[in-house]
Design a protein around this nucleic acid. Structure first.
Length: 618
RNA sequence: GCCGACGUAGCUCAAGCGGCAGAGCAACCGCCUUGUAAGUGGUAGGUUACGGGUUCGAUUCCCGUCGUCGGCUCCA
């Protein structure tokens, strides 16, 4: 991008404008699945399959749906595809589109379908599922017994429910592009064959494709891994190990601010802070059930005096032992223990991802203990509190999920359903939109998850609020009730920010590194124009530091333009330019990182402005 | 873990079909003393991720390991 075409908008709004782009593209008042764009993409995937089969006649086709921003199709091919293959496939697709092929639907019987697809084992498997009436043509569970239909265009025929465009002339060949090849398991099952998936995208018009590709480029710029390097926030290093994060001073500063805010808010809301060790004996993890249910995610034990100790993958057993340390009365409830607990979990090498998915991370964990009758209000409280904290960081677009009883679970179904209802009630009361995730709960209880999206629209779970029917039993937790008898308390696990690592990653992407002032590691760069202005800049910096502002003086023997450029690249919120005029009037010339030049103002006026921005968390 | 791609200076990237490894930025030493996004000259910087193998010779070819990236599966 040319230097003087630099966008002037505040980058933090970029994400929002990108989201609205997607809405703009959608047909008015029509669900995506019924939109014209969806047909274009789905049809493009069939055309791609045709082009691939022409190139590899012995290839086997699996499924090829339209997805959010495009489409994909899975194939079993004799050799791995290269980027050159993609180019030639794309070229062939354009030719097919331009030959104006018709898409023809035909309902067929299972027998006819089996004959048509006799050389396509994946299709035969799908047909068998359709025949059984429990799976649709994408292999997803369904209630009704669907009509088997096929779509054909040119020489290609596919098992498909549709809908498609009527004719490929409705697809603009210049608005279609293949993006990447990746491995994907047949039916998403890692025990089944690995297929090759080609991802592509298609739009109504070439301009929309161009805009989408631009958007992908922009998304790359706000990738937290790239910004982590550029802004000197964190790193990982081969010598230490994969998925283990080094927080650099600037990232550490931000973490510290987050932690301080977190502590104040928790203290003000009835939480008590606890600290617990990083390892515990194998017996502890047997009692908790982790060695039974979670062993794959735990690291090998260390031997201490002939006893096995495990690194903790969770903090709960430790908090529970604090609870158990004395006899509890119903009068004490609710008890809320909070800890920034660092846990270690084995994650398979292929899933590691920057700060978002790591092997050692710090959860902002808490465990609530209460009487059964307090449960609804306790859920209300923790949900409200969570939303309050997330919104304090500027996250407005929060998606909630309610996960219910999985197949493998402990506890009576009645308790599950009561707990699920309590969670749902809280969601309704808090007026958050939520989706159901049936069967998505932990084995020990239902949960609410709160997620926010990263730069390229991937959702990341931050908050999780989980009921636990398991641990109070396993550890035999009790309290003495009004009746003088022991009772079993209810227990909630919750991680609010989730993990500090992931939260930081999401925060970086959300703001594209241009953090709100209160979070910025350096809030102001003082920029003396010439060396003779450095002393004044240092004095001004001292004043600002006394006001608890984080500032740096750029006293390099560089031109002002270079200093501004560097401060700008570091996304420092305020640049204070100091020259002869400013010194004469005891002022600083304020420039904002959005490029706005506000001119000279008294230092005291800058302090007021900065403090106001900080208190407003903008 | 699986499929594919990749690993060259602090960063971003060249080159090398097996024969002395190169640029910009950053760093360091100077000069310039600057008015809202890169002033200028010089210096230094590398066991080409690591370990083996083939070879007169490997950074290049082969094997393995580690790591990174895009997905899949799995999760904060």
């Amino acid at each position: 991008m040319a230097l003087n075409s630099r966008p002037k908008w505040d980058e933090r709004f970029l994400l929002l404008s990108l989201v609205s782009l997607e809405e703009k593209m959608a047909d008015e008042n029509v669900p995506y699945e019924e939109s014209h764009l969806y047909r274009i993409r789905h049809s493009a995937s069939h055309i791609m399959a045709q082009a691939v089969l022409e190139k590899f006649p012995e290839g086997k086709v699996a499924i090829g749906p339209a997805i959010d921003d495009g489409f994909y199709y899975d194939f079993d091919l004799p050799r791995p595809l290269t980027m050159e293959d993609l180019e030639s496939i794309e070229k062939r697709m354009r030719a097919i589109i331009q030959s104006k092929v018709e898409f023809v639907r035909k309902d067929v019987s299972a027998e006819e379908a089996k004959e048509i697809f006799k050389d396509q084992p994946f299709k035969l498997e799908l047909i068998a599922g359709l025949e059984e009436g429990n799976l649709d043509e994408d292999g997803n569970p369904t209630d009704e017994k669907p009509q088997i239909s096929i779509y054909s265009q040119d020489k290609f025929v596919d098992l498909c429910r549709g809908p498609h465009v009527e004719n490929s002339s409705q697809i603009n060949p210049q608005a279609v592009k293949l993006l990447s090849v990746a491995g994907a398991y047949w039916r998403g099952d890692e025990k089944r064959p690995m297929l090759q998936r080609i991802y592509g995208t298609a739009w109504n018009k070439p301009d929309e494709l161009k805009e989408y590709l631009w958007r992908l480029e922009e998304a790359k710029k706000r990738d937290h891994r790239k910004l982590g390097q550029e802004l000197d926030l964190f790193s990982t290093v081969d010598e230490i190990g994969a998925g283990l994060i080094l927080w650099h001073p600037k990232g550490g500063k931000i973490r510290k601010i987050i932690e301080n805010f977190w502590s104040e808010e928790h203290e003000a809301n009835g939480y008590e802070f606890v600290y617990t060790p990083h390892i515990g004996k194998s017996k502890l993890w047997e009692t908790s059930g982790h060695l039974g249910f979670y062993k794959e995610n735990m690291y090998s034990p260390v031997d201490i005096d002939g006893q096995q100790y495990f690194l903790k993958p969770m903090n709960c057993p430790f908090h529970i032992h604090i609870y158990k340390n004395t006899i509890r009365s119903y009068r004490e409830f609710p008890i809320r223990y909070a800890e920034e607990g660092t846990v270690y979990r084995y994650e398979r090498s292929g899933v590691l991802h920057g700060l978002m998915r790591v092997r050692g991370f710090t959860q902002d964990d808490a465990h609530h203990f209460c009487r059964p009758d307090q449960m609804p209000s306790e859920i209300d409280f923790v949900l409200d509190f969570s939303l309050h904290i997330l919104r304090s960081f500027g996250f407005s677009d929060i998606q909630a999920y309610l996960s219910t009883m999985p197949e493998k679970s402990v506890g009576e179904p009645e308790r599950w359903h009561a707990a699920e209802a309590a969670l749902e009630e809280s969601l309704k009361r808090a007026k958050v939109t939520y989706k159901l995730d049936p069967g998505g709960g932990a084995f020990y209880g239902p949960k609410i998850d709160l997620k926010v999206s990263d730069a390229i629209g991937r959702e990341w779970q931050l908050t999780t609020i989980q009921f636990d029917f398991n641990l109070p039993d396993r550890f035999d937790l009790t309290y003495i009730g009004e009746d003088g008898q022991p009772h079993r308390p209810y227990m909630i696990h919750r991680a609010l920010l989730g993990s500090l690592e992931r939260f930081f990653g999401v925060l970086i992407e959300y703001y594209a590194g241009a953090f709100p002032v209160w979070l910025s590691p350096v809030q102001a760069a003082l920029i003396p124009i010439a060396d003779r202005h450095v002393d004044f800049a240092r004095e001004a910096a001292a004043k600002l530091r006394q006001e608890k502002l984080r500032v740096m003086v750029d006293d390099r023997s560089e031109r002002m333009n270079a200093k501004i450029r560097d401060a700008q690249k570091q996304k420092i919120p305020y640049m204070l330019v100091i020259g002869d005029k400013e010194i004469e009037n005891n002022q600083v010339a304020l420039r904002l990182r959005n490029g706005e030049n506000l001119g000279p103002i008294p230092i005291s006026a800058f302090i007021d402005r900065a403090k106001e921005d900080i208190s407003k968390k903008i």
